[in-house]
Amino acid sequence: MNNAFAKSWMIAVYAFLYLPIITLVVYSFNASPLVTVWSHASVKWYVALMADDDLISAVKLSLEIAFLSALMSVFFGTFTAFALNRYRRFSGRTLLSSMASAPLVMPDVIVGLSLLLMLVSVQHWLGFPDRGLFTILLGHALLGAAYANVVITSRLREMDGRLDEAAMDLGCKPFQVFRLVTLPLLVPALVSAFLLTFTLSFDDVVLSSFLSGPGYSTLPMVIFSRARLGLNPSINAAATVIISVVTIGVIALSLYQARAARQRKREMALVYSESNQNT
């Protein structure tokens, strides 16, 4: 297989992945209310965005839900990851691991429908919860916890089990081991899990649609309801803002990680040359 073929294949796939996004961004500066018919460049849809109260309140709600559900996801995801990795044998371990991965693979419509029907039954008996922020939160946290579990598990697996033993050997009780050794080493994974689950929540439309009640429309729900009706210049502008924020965030984070990795490599190289001089 030659190099030129490989290169063109890769370029084609990246073009396939990025062309729609670029088009979306470009057309957000189109003055015409007909999205696909280019008239001239303008920022008028961005100006209109500022006055779009539905959209703004939806953004606020989505941010709130994303933040809280990401916290919950990381919390429960960490618990699950620890239970499944620390205890190799307990009755019902298989059931727990299947339940933990079910939200990952089950179609969103099923997760949404089953959760809603459960919540309706609970409401029938107990009189709460009403459908709204809390119920959406629960759905997003469920999905997020499943993803957080995967991220944290992979980090736990690559962590040297001897570190825990070393801590215990030096006098740590089990909880101290967690607080002083495991948790600090887990922080990068917890941060990634938080960011991932935040994004998932901020992006979800199906679960929110099932679980929300009157007056609670998340940003994706508003965008979805407008997109169903056809092309809409306000979505282009909103999309461009969201995509820019996420892109900048992701690039900044990955640059930071790459720099930390380079720094570490440099330090190790330095040690190597030092120890060569000594001997």
Partner: peptide
């Protein structure tokens, strides 16, 4: 953690 015994681990397990 209650034994007056300490161990030097294989490949050290330094934190």
């Amino acid at each position: 953690y209650q034994r007056p015994i300490n161990m030097m681990f294989q490949s050290y397990a330094l934190f």
